[in-house]
């Protein structure tokens, strides 16, 4: 009971902080401390969000399709790589540094190259998202697989369990916590990755919309799309949290 009321108070504080900042922003715009075409007031941003809503949704659909496809493939590939690396130590030692290396290449640097190779359709965008999302999943799962109690493994072996049973009963469920915290990161990477890759060319999507309104100096629409993107990211992360609660009921009953 106490914890619940505490979390409500916490929410109250963060809500009032957000509201306060909005008022401050509105005040600055109303008093024309900053030119309104440079910093549109929250009220104008809100209006842009409403009037542009149908258009934004069209673009969001494209961005979300890319993000989901990329995230799904990234997680699946991350899973497969983690399982292979966990099982074959030589593969782990050969490819682990290489995988880390792929992460030192900045996404923005890679995107134009992918556009040149695969064109302006969805393929290069999905590839880019896969490349950024598989990595946290692989790393999280690998450390999860490797952190299991060796005594628990020998106990299962003493019951006659083979590698498949040990994976199923110990390694996989034991790595779920690490998996979900990585998955959460990957989910937010997916949306950002999709937007960035759209900046560099494409026929639709929130990133394309963003470059268009930028060229038109429509700052209110610019802010509107930024807010939409962060809302989408938050919702995705919330979705992952809900999924993780569903998949790890034991975490709720401590």
């Amino acid at each position: 009971m106490k914890r619940k009321s505490q979390s409500i108070t916490n929410k109250l504080w963060s809500c009032s902080a957000v509201l306060g900042l909005l008022f401050l922003w509105q005040g600055i715009s109303s008093l024309r401390l900053i030119e309104p075409y440079l910093l549109p007031s929250p009220e104008r941003v809100g209006r842009a969000l409403i009037t542009e809503f149908p258009v934004l949704m069209e673009h969001a659909k494209i961005t979300l399709t890319e993000a989901f496809a990329g995230l799904f493939l990234g997680v699946v590939i991350g899973f497969i790589i983690a399982i292979i690396m966990d099982h074959f130590d030589k593969v782990y030692r050969a490819f682990y540094p290489l995988i880390v290396l792929t992460q030192t290449v900045p996404t923005v640097a890679l995107a134009p190259l992918l556009v040149l190779w695969f064109g302006y359709e969805m393929t290069p965008k999905i590839i880019l998202i896969v490349m950024t999302t598989f990595f946290p999943v692989t790393i999280g799962l690998l450390s999860g697989f490797r952190s299991q109690d060796p005594d628990a493994v020998s106990l299962l072996r003493s019951m006659g369990a083979g590698p498949v049973s040990i994976f199923r009963y110990i390694k996989l469920p034991g790595a779920m916590k690490q998996f979900f915290s990585s998955f959460r990161i990957s989910a937010s990477y997916a949306v950002v990755g999709a937007v960035i890759s759209e900046w560099l060319g494409g026929f639709g999507g929130l990133g394309v919309y963003m470059t268009r309104v930028k060229k038109a100096f429509a700052f209110d629409k610019m802010f509107a799309v930024i807010i939409l993107i962060s809302i989408i990211s938050l919702l995705l992360m919330k979705g992952v949290d809900m999924l993780s609660k569903k998949c790890m009921p034991w975490e709720q009953k401590q």
């Binding site: 109690d149 005594d151 628990a152 106990l155 110990i170 469920p173 779920m176 034991w250």
Partner: peptide, 10 residues
């Protein structure tokens, strides 16, 4: 074993 080794997620 001495440790009960009950799996926390089951």
């Amino acid at each position: 074993l001495q440790k009960d080794l009950l799996l926390p997620y089951r």
